[in-house]
Design a protein around this nucleic acid. Structure first.
Lengths: 115, 115
DNA sequence: CGGGATCCACCTTGATACTG
DNA sequence: CAGTATCAAGGTGGATCCCG
């Protein structure tokens, strides 16, 4: 039988996994997110900028704002001179860790075969 | 302390998670891969083309070849008229399923919060 | 200090046509 | 049938300058 596969599976736009890809795709998403998750404390913009080197300011800003919009990080602006802005992973963001770890395990286990 | 975060974490190019993103990023990677995983049997090119609609021939070819290079799918050419080429998920590819499922679970659980 | 605004090179993806 | 070739377009990410 030459069936209609599409009807059987949720692998389209509304698919959770496609959404996940949209969440973590992009050159710097994981490097930023994983640092915030592992460190698990507030970080200043400029510290992150150095940590995720050699990312540009523009990209770091864009990614952080995107994570903020998704509820994965919080953005805290302090009314000081000089200005200070701190970013921190949220509980939602931290809850991603087991999943990300399991994923990293799979990659480590199969790195040799994949390459 | 304004520490050097980079030194502490593997979140860079060689990071397993970054590699994973490279593996499944792209508009059609998951829709193709997940179908092959769930159906778990050989599929002709044209059947896949219809199943993953509205992907273009070019993109489907490119993704399948990429998966093949990574050892996630096999490509079987039959010397017939008309020509027939079948693609099938490998054991390595199938082993990805638990990880992908767990990931989909997280997305489903937090879909409301994320949107 | 923490961005925003521009401009630009590249890469990805798509549309279309052609072929063994 | 299962591709390849070619061209076009949009998006991603980088470089640079500017600002409160």
């Amino acid at each position: 039988m030459t069936q209609n596969i599409s009807a059987l599976i949720e692998a389209d736009a509304g698919c959770p996994m496609v959404s996940f890809v949209n969440l973590i795709a992009g050159k710097w998403a994981i490097p930023i997110l994983y640092r915030l998750i592992l460190l698990n404390k507030p970080f200043r913009f400029s510290d992150l900028l150095r940590a995720v080197e050699p990312i540009t300011q523009k990209e770091l800003t864009r990614q952080l704002r995107q994570f903020e919009a998704r509820g994965l990080v919080t953005r805290n602006v302090f009314a000081e001179v000089p200005p200070r802005v701190e970013y921190q992973i949220t509980e939602l963001g931290k809850s991603l860790r087991p999943t990300l770890d399991s994923l990293a395990d799979w990659m480590r286990a199969n790195a040799a075969v994949l390459k």
